[in-house]
Simulated assay, not measured.
Amino acid sequence: MTVTGLSQRVVVVTGAGSGIGRAAALRFGQEGAKVLAADLNGEAAKETVRQIEGEGGTAVAVIGDLSRQDVVDEVVTTAVRSLGGLDVLVNNAGIMDRMSAAADADDAEWERVLRINLTAPFMLTRAALPHMLESGQGSIVFTASEASLRGSSAGAAYTASKHGILGLTKSLAVMYREQGIRTNAIAPGGTITGIEVDIQEGAHGPEVIGSYARNIGRLSAAEEQAAAIVFLASDAASNINGVILPVDNGWSAV
């Protein structure tokens, strides 16, 4: 028996095809939730669904770029029509930048990272909110980053996008707490995932950031991050709202 209160709740997880997103989707499935796995990689999203169903759970996949309104609409419509509602939204999908310092970041890098890491989760949250407001309850969890808390963890674009996630998290927490909606975020430290960083050799940003790498400490498993996400989404965290939870083996304390 679980004590999370997530059984039969409908959970949307973005970036569910790998890493933290897949680990979270699987964990929600184990808690008895009905899971919508959204990802740009169709085969990866379908594999997550297969794994959840293989454990006796219920899941569907939606494939596409979440910075497109039609894909956002498909996610929300599928959750409501196919799974019966939308109780939890996990805005996890994201990409890294090239660790570029501001003077070296071109428009393409800046715009792509902000679009995927900040604009896309905003759009999905905006689309999900009417359904949560109608039901009078909901939980939203963002995957922020150590780069939300400091300037030494990533490049200018990624750091700005994740600081934006903190502001969005806190704004949502204040704006909708009286309507029964909680919004929180985890701030992962170094985590073993499949995310790739295309670092330009000899660039200023990576050279500076590298000098702080000794503070990272032990890398976490994706499942450790997933456990924090599920906790924040669950009834066990019923009075936790507007929190940015570092899951970083103490990196944020250094």
Rank of each mutant, 00 (worst) to 15 (best):
T4L: 15
T4A: 15
L6D: 14
L6W: 09
S7I: 15
Q8C: 06
R9L: 14
R9F: 06
V10L: 09
V10D: 13
G17D: 13
A25H: 12
A25C: 14
A25K: 11
F28W: 12
F28C: 08
Q30G: 15
Q30E: 15
K34Y: 09
A45S: 12
E55L: 10
G56I: 08
G57Y: 08
T58H: 12
V60C: 04
V62P: 07
G64M: 08
D65H: 11
S67R: 11
S67F: 01
Q69L: 10
E74A: 14
A79P: 08
L83M: 05
G85P: 08
D87N: 13
D87C: 00
V88R: 02
V88I: 12
N92V: 10
D97M: 01
A101V: 12
A103F: 01
D106I: 04
E109C: 01
E111Y: 02
R112F: 00
R115M: 07
L118Y: 08
L118P: 03
T119W: 03
A120R: 09
P121A: 02
T125Y: 03
R126M: 03
R126K: 15
A128G: 08
H131L: 12
S135A: 14
E146K: 11
R150W: 04
S152V: 09
S152G: 07
A157Y: 10
L166I: 15
G167M: 12
T169K: 11
A173E: 09
T183Y: 06
I186Q: 06
P188Y: 05
G189F: 00
G194M: 00
I199D: 01
Q200E: 11
E201I: 07
P206N: 04
S211C: 00
N215W: 08
R218N: 02
L219A: 07
A222Q: 00
E224P: 05
F231E: 06
L232K: 12
S238W: 01
S238A: 12
I240W: 07
I240F: 00
I240T: 13
G242R: 10
L245W: 12
N249V: 13
N249K: 06
G250R: 08
A253T: 09
